[in-house]
Amino acid sequence: MADQTQKKPLLSVTAEKYQTLIKQYTPKPTIIKNVVRAFIVGGIICSIGQIFINLFSSFGLARVEASTAATATMIFLGALLTGLGVYDEIGKFGGAGSIVPVTGFANSIVAPAMEFKREGYVMGVGAKLFTVAGPVLVYGITTSIVVGFVYFLLH
């Protein structure tokens, strides 16, 4: 028989106190390990980019054109490695080191494109393509416009 007068046992920890318990029991992010790995992975990616710049320069391209061609090559490689299912593994290891370079940007466009293709090319790929990169584009472009405007006024 259900006894409605029975006292209900309650947790003796309040939601407030629980927040300190969470801090105590949640493992800290491995910052030093992540920073070192990001430095190595990011460094390697940028070195590869530099190799392409030098290579294209040796083909007779001017400095600016060579770096544009190298950027395009790196974007292609980032997209290719995403398609082959390798870039997410690099990202897991390298963290910011593989997100910040242009290859990471390629990854953040190609990954949603692959993921949402099953929902069709319009409402899938088309609508979801910028789910990851969208905020970077919106605020990156806005910032560059503002900075460009300030630069224009100062000169």
Partner: peptide, 17 residues
């Protein structure tokens, strides 16, 4: 993953928790 978090091929690190 694709409903709650990120596309499966996105190269991101997961929290320790």
């Amino acid at each position: 993953e694709r409903q709650y978090r990120l596309p499966t091929e996105q190269g991101a690190q997961r929290a320790m928790s």
